[in-house]
Write a protein that binds this DNA or RNA. Structure first.
Length: 1110
RNA sequence: GGGCCUAUAGCUCAGUCGGUUAGAGCGCUUCCCUGAUAAGGAAGAGGUCACUGGUUCGAAUCCAGUUAGGCCCA
């Protein structure tokens, strides 16, 4: 009996709506998939199927049989959304598939735990806003709050992931906050340092002087009102070039002028030198340089039409030197030159930009390029420090006023000038309204400021990164040399430190006295213990590399000969923590605590075989994995990568909780199920890099197109296998021995499907695999099962041998199919496969081997032709208004190899309801018979290269009929001679035919002719079939089971009566009537509830009464 | 402002090496079929392959530019 494993599902999966046709011994006609899925999930849980699927497969020597999958760790301080589910499904499908292909695939779940989001959440929960308050609260307590916030939703995550049927190991997971993980991370830092690939420098960031902390760009976008309108003073200052002119620069941050290091110009911008008097000093004529496009903006100071003395481009200006506006950094190496920069525009200002290096991101890039060392005379409180002694202790914004006063005084040659240099001129001061960033916490205006940071010198090995990228397979392909490749080519050094609290520590200890410099870098607990005499331990006495415990490790500076009493300097850790991306990029080795453990394993499992994340990770995880892999191991970190697109809400916008523009995840699980969602996401273009709009109808579509057909086939099988031999049932077996053409076709088609599917899965082409599956299911249900139905209840001939073959074939097909697509629909296939075979789990089996199935491509092609014949014939019936139940005498099929279709003639005859299917070779068909003619088709692909332009003439000739064939077989079209292979001659038929027949072309060549003559005899049989149909409907309406025997009464006109007499056997057999009577008088049956009325034949009325017997 | 991607039926998307009649699913209209299927079949309507120019005997396809949208960077 099927299902062979009734306990596979818990409870009764049948829906209440399904009581009419009756469940087939426990297999419901229309299952409630979510409930079915929960049953399977419970079974896996209790059976330990997941672990068994791994244990089943040997790892091989040095893990040669392992497929290595890296889980990109999510940050779990929120609940999972569709994006997580999407990657989760891919992260499940690929390992499941590889497992069934014989590989051992360990899957460890990973958690990303460090970083700013955790800190912000902890600050919010504790109602604090500044880093000072964190220190006040205590770093230990604060970090404890971070730790609990990032692990807050792990339980929910586990539930979601389990519900989506993703098999992943939560017991043996990795967390970036584990001491072992962090030890590997500092090992990586130290290794990079030993290779000379990390250095300390400045990083320019938005900086809040009030909270005394740099902000991330992420924080800049925190609120819409971070950018507020603000009035600032703007000054235009002339700086004295070595060639004598005054280069005019414009800035809205006068306070950066004391730190000026260079002037930037646009290479292709046109500049002019003009002569004009100095404002407030009319006798003093100077030569000024500014962009020609900006002349008009300075008409007030320079005159409407100033005398242009010289014109030159930015490129010509570059290289000149000048005297800085203030004298603090006079003599600074490489500084005070005119340099070119791409971002200089002439939309405002003067077309010359002053740069102070460490007070702007672009500025920093340019000064780095020019080897100008940044200066930083502004302290962490935003106040000036040495050597800018004139404004010492003043907040930079407050210093704007005295700075401008000093410039003005120097220009006029009177009053206090501070440290303004000789010859510097203030041309204009104005007030400027602009959108300016403010701190999202304290609302004070931010400044851009260089802060100390450690960098990975990516630029040193980026060429190697580009080379190693060639070894990676990307999906979609264009990522390789596009988004990712371009990013690599333009890679900059990576700032890896953050002046924060919750993260892996920067393992660098520095002397606290510059007089006795020393730097120590540590890469393990052991090294720390060696130098400090103890390990960093937390309050519970456990090894812990987090702050503040690691900061407690302090020791005297060995390079300082003084004694502690003499004030010996101490080695103290730099207080920064590492960028969280350093954590996640370290995941391949850190998750196994390499190199402290698992050295051998790691060496043989790196690079990983496969990763998947969304396309934005080309700048994130994909990138940091690649940087660290290249720098540390000179290998790529992964061999193959899918970067998928973005999941959008139903309105095409980003998913947003407030807009409620996407269906709730749990609602979908509860209503449609995890396999339905899996199918929806996996069959979509999102895995090719496109975007995806999540809609409820889209999800249900997959259920209707794939899951229901698959299930219905299984239901059909179980229904009739169990009903076999009067209910005794038939134990179908795995067999490919059937000689029936439909069976052979199905198995050959199945083989081709499995081959195709595996090719797609091997390429991780999941979307195409889904499409192939959908196409095959269509063949299975809408051709094979539909055309084979009567064989399944034909238990008469040869002791039911016909039915047995059909059952065995369908069993075999379902068994192979469920194994083939088990990764794509793991829950549904599990239920079916277990019901079918009684085995433990489809996921413990091997993927199907195509060679177990018969190969017969010719048969597949022929059957597909037969299907085309049926389709064309149906179209003719429709055009001639001849219903399919009305039998016709003949359908003639004329094709090139008609004999090959002989085997399928009965199938076609039955499908299109004709008495006879005549087959005729095209070569022997007489033109006169059907009004056929020949048509010339030019093969442009073949003829084009030889004929060139002439081919168009030949094509026009073939279409207009201007072509000929000589008796010798020479073909000419449009006057152009064609040679063998450049043309084909096809037989065509007039598309209409005359009154007694209808003709139609077949898509692959050939045509069909349908005899449309309706004789009285055919008319009568058609009527009888109408009656059968009406009786079947009556059976259904009466709620009878398909195998119930009935007593049948039919009444109607004389025409109806005669049909029941002539076709009594047909009616009785088709409707399982063991008692039958009919009468030539409609009213012989009264019009009552249990009597059905029907219109049959050409408008004849009939009454039908059906009664169950026994 | 820069880089990358996308633009094909009402909707969502395929479209191989450039080959002359551009496909699928969904939706719509009409008809048909139904002893598994909340189904199925057929026909029909629906296309300036975003636009402009170029290369070519021939362009949805290759090239350049334009427009619109998306992602990332600035």
């Amino acid at each position: 009996m099927f299902p062979a494993q009734p306990e596979a599902t818990s409870g009764d999966p049948a829906t209440p709506a399904n009581d009419a046709p009756g469940a087939a011994f426990g297999v419901p006609a229309s299952p409630h998939f979510p409930k079915l899925e929960e049953g399977v999930l419970a079974y896996w849980q209790q059976d330990g199927t997941f672990q068994a699927s791994i244990d089943n497969r040997p790892a091989g020597d040095h893990g040669s049989n392992e497929f290595v999958f890296y889980d990109g760790p999510p940050f779990a301080n929120g609940l999972p959304h569709y994006g997580h589910l999407l990657t989760g499904y891919v992260k499940d499908i690929v390992p499941r598939y590889e497992t069934m292909r014989g590989k051992r695939v360990e899957r460890r779940f990973g958690w990303d735990t460090h970083g700013l989001p955790a800190e912000l959440e902890a600050m919010r929960l504790n109602g604090i806003k500044t880093t000072d308050e964190i220190v006040e609260m205590g770093i230990a307590e604060f970090n404890e709050a971070c730790r609990s916030s990032v692990l807050k939703y792990t339980k929910e995550w586990q539930e979601y992931v389990t519900r989506q049927a993703r098999w992943v190991d939560f017991e043996n997971d990795y967390k970036t906050l584990n001491p072992d993980y962090m030890e590997s991370v500092i090992w990586a830092f130290k290794t990079l340092h030993d290779k000379g690939l990390v250095y300390e420098g400045f990083r320019v960031l938005p900086y809040c002087w009030n909270d005394e902390t740099p902000l991330s760009n992420h924080e800049l976008r925190m609120d819409d009102d971070v950018y507020q309108s603000r009035q600032d003073p703007a000054v235009t200052v002339g700086l004295r070039l070595n060639t004598g002119e005054l280069a005019l620069v414009w800035t809205t941050t006068p306070w950066t002028l004391p730190s000026n290091l260079a002037i930037m110009v646009g290479e292709d911008i046109d500049y002019v030198v003009i002569e004009a008097p100095v404002p407030g000093n009319p006798e003093r004529i100077e030569r000024f340089i500014l962009a020609e496009a900006r002349l008009g903006a300075y008409a007030r100071e320079l005159g409407d039409e100033p005398v242009v003395v010289e014109r030159l481009t930015g490129a010509q200006l570059a290289g000149r030197t000048y005297t800085p506006p203030f004298s603090y950094y006079l003599g600074h190496e490489n500084a005070f030159r005119v340099v070119t920069a791409e971002f200089v525009t002439t939309t405002d200002g003067t077309g010359l930009v002053h740069t102070a290096g460490a007070f702007g991101e672009d500025d920093k890039v340019v000064t780095d390029r020019e080897n100008i060392e940044a200066v930083m005379p502004v302290g962490k409180d935003g106040k000036f420090t040495a050597p800018v002694n004139d404004y010492l202790g003043q907040l930079v914004f407050d210093a704007n006023a005295p700075i401008m006063e000093h410039l003005k005084a120097a220009t006029r040659g009177e009053g206090e000038t501070g440290s303004v240099t000789e010859g510097t001129v203030l041309l204009r001061r104005e007030t400027y309204d602009h959108s300016y960033p403010h701190c999202w916490r304290c609302r004070q205006p931010l400044i851009y400021k260089g802060v100390s940071s450690w960098f990975v010198a990516v630029t040193q090995f980026k060429d190697r990164m580009v080379e190693l990228n060639e070894q990676i397979t990307w999906t979609p392909e264009h990522i390789k040399h596009g988004q990712f490749g371009k990013w690599l080519e333009n890679a900059r050094d990576w700032s890896i430190t953050r002046n924060r609290f919750w993260g892996s520590p920067v393992p660098v200890w520095k002397s606290d006295d510059e007089a006795y410099p020393r730097i120590d870098v540590y890469g393990s607990f052991e090294e720390l213990e060696r130098d400090f005499g103890r390990l960093p331990v937390n309050a519970d006495g456990e090894r812990d590399l987090h702050r503040p415990y690691v900061d407690d490790l302090v020791r005297p500076n060995p390079d300082d000969p003084r004694t502690p009493e003499e004030g010996q300097s101490m080695m103290r850790r730099v207080t920064d923590v590492l960028d969280v991306w350093f954590d996640s990029g370290s995941m391949p080795y850190a998750q196994v605590h390499y190199p402290f453990e698992n050295r051998d394993w790691f060496e043989n499992h790196y690079p990983g075989d496969f990763i998947v994340e969304y396309i934005g990770q080309t700048r994130g995880w994909f990138y940091t994995l690649h940087v660290l892999a290249t720098a540390l191991f000179d290998r790529p970190a992964f061999k193959s990568c899918i970067s998928h697109g973005i999941v959008l809400g139903s309105d095409g916008q980003k998913m947003s909780k407030s807009l409620r523009n996407y269906p709730d995840v749990n609602e979908v699980f509860d209503r449609d199920g995890a396999d339905a969602m899996r199918w929806f996401l996996m069959a979509s273009p999102i895995l090719r890099g496109g975007n995806l709009i999540v809609t409820e109808p889209g999800i249900r579509d997959g259920v209707r197109q794939v899951m229901l057909p698959l299930w219905s086939t299984w239901y059909f099988f179980s229904l009739y296998a169990n009903a076999f031999d009067g209910g005794a049932g038939y134990e179908a077996k795995w067999s490919t021995a059937s000689t029936d053409p439909l069976d052979r076709y199905l198995l050959a088609k199945l083989r081709e499907f499995v081959t195709e599917l595996q090719g797609q899965m091997d390429r991780f082409d999941i979307a195409d695999a889904c499409e192939s599956t959908r196409t095959f299911l269509d063949v299975l249900t809408n051709w094979y099962v539909r055309r084979s139905r009567d064989r399944f209840w034909d238990t008469s001939a040869q002791d039911g041998a016909v039915a047995r073959q059909a059952f065995d074939t369908l069993y075999t097909c379902l068994e192979v199919l469920t194994r083939a697509i088990a990764p794509l629909l793991p829950l549904t296939t599990e239920e079916i496969w277990r019901g079918l075979t009684g085995g433990r789990s489809v996921h413990l089996t091997d993927a199907p081997d195509p060679s177990d199935l018969p190969q017969d491509h010719a048969l597949v092609v022929q059957m597909d032709t037969a299907r085309a014949v049926c389709s064309a014939a149906s179209s003719l019936r429709k055009a001639n208004k001849l219903r399919v139940r009305l039998p016709l005498s003949d359908l003639t099929v004329v094709t090139d190899d008609a004999a090959a279709l002989q085997e399928f003639a009965p199938i076609v005859a039955d499908e299109v309801n004709v008495r006879q299917v005549s087959l005729q070779d095209a070569s022997t068909a007489q033109a006169a018979d059907y009004g056929i003619s020949q048509q010339l088709v030019v093969n442009a692909r073949a003829a084009g290269p030889r004929l060139g332009k002439e081919v168009q003439v030949a094509i026009r000739g073939s279409k207009s009929g201007d072509w000929s064939v000589t008796p010798d077989g020479d073909v000419t079209s449009g006057g152009i001679a064609l040679v063998e292979g450049e043309y084909t001659l096809e037989t065509v038929v007039a598309q209409d035919g005359d009154g007694s027949r209808a003709t139609a072309m077949l898509p692959g060549g050939g045509f069909i002719v349908l005899d449309t003559t309706v004789t009285p005899e055919l008319e009568q049989e058609g009527l009888a079939r109408d009656l059968v149909r009406a009786v079947q409907q009556a059976r259904r309406d009466a709620g009878l089971d398909v195998s119930d025997r009935i007593s049948l009464t039919i009444t109607g006109s004389a025409t109806v009566f005669e049909a029941t007499v002539t076709h009594r056997d047909l009616i009785v057999e088709e409707t399982l009537a063991t008692q039958f009577s009919s009468a030539p008088q409609l009213d012989a049956l009264p019009a009552r509830d249990d009597v059905a009325e029907a219109t049959v034949g050409e408008g004849e009325s009939a009454r039908i009464k059906v009664m169950k017997i026994g």
